[in-house]
Amino acid sequence: MEKRVVFRSAWLPYALVAPQIAITVVFFFWPAAQAVWYSFQLQDAFGLKTQFVGLQNFAALFKDGNYLDSFRVTAVFSALVAFIGIAISLLLAAMADRVLRGALAYKTLLVWPYAVAPAVAGVLWAFLFAPSIGIVTYVLKGFGVDWNWILDGDQAMLLIVIASVWKQISYNFLFFLAGLQSIPRSLIEAAAIDGAGPTRRFWTVVFPLLSPTTFFLLVVNVVYAFFDTFGVIDATTQGGPAQATQILVYKVYHDGVKAADLGSSSAQSVILMFIVIALTVVQFRFIERKVQY
């Protein structure tokens, strides 16, 4: 039954939602509108004169090799973060699901990284992997690996992928564990009686039944890699070396704040806004039809 509060006063309900709406307007709609406005303008180097230039900022972006490169970096980065994060957490969840007794301890331990702020996670991993003084660097040297992400773009990418994945695993893990525990035991038993071994059971019964969870996490992880990893990157590579780890959201910040190119930066953030909207639509579409099989 639906429980509904009926207000007799005409203005009271509006007054009650007003603060929420005000916050949304001030902190979301207003800056978003400003970004759209700036994206149509060109500012001189000293910020003294602005000029309306229409879609020129956008046109310039798509001709800019750096920007397109940032797209490629973002695609690689988010694919790696989403895929590795999902694979590792699925593995951990499947193992935790088998040990029922220790499950709570596992859960608690695995949830901790999620509570760590992105920048702190970044600093933590940056220390571990620091060229010449990091402990992992030291161990790697022992294996004959020359580790220096300050110079090597691939290694820098690897570092931010590791730090970002580490932070997101707990979130994925919880969803997978809940998903696994909602699969009736009798299904697994039926498959065992039908003759399927553990591996086959996993791929033919468990994994397909987890596909709604996996898809949901895929979207969430891509969004995470696109936007929430800003702190990780800012605390470690800062987009370098030579833009090897400059994902779109970092480039917005870099161009706008460091290079003070407000028009281009705004245009970039408008593009990002459309990407978020697209991803959100995909996710809502999906949540509407919860069951896939």
Binding site: P184, S186, E189, A190, A191, P208, Y293
Partner: peptide, 9 residues
């Protein structure tokens, strides 16, 4: 099984 345990997918 009591709940049939059919593979839903």
């Amino acid at each position: 099984f009591q709940n049939y345990a059919l593979y839903p997918h």
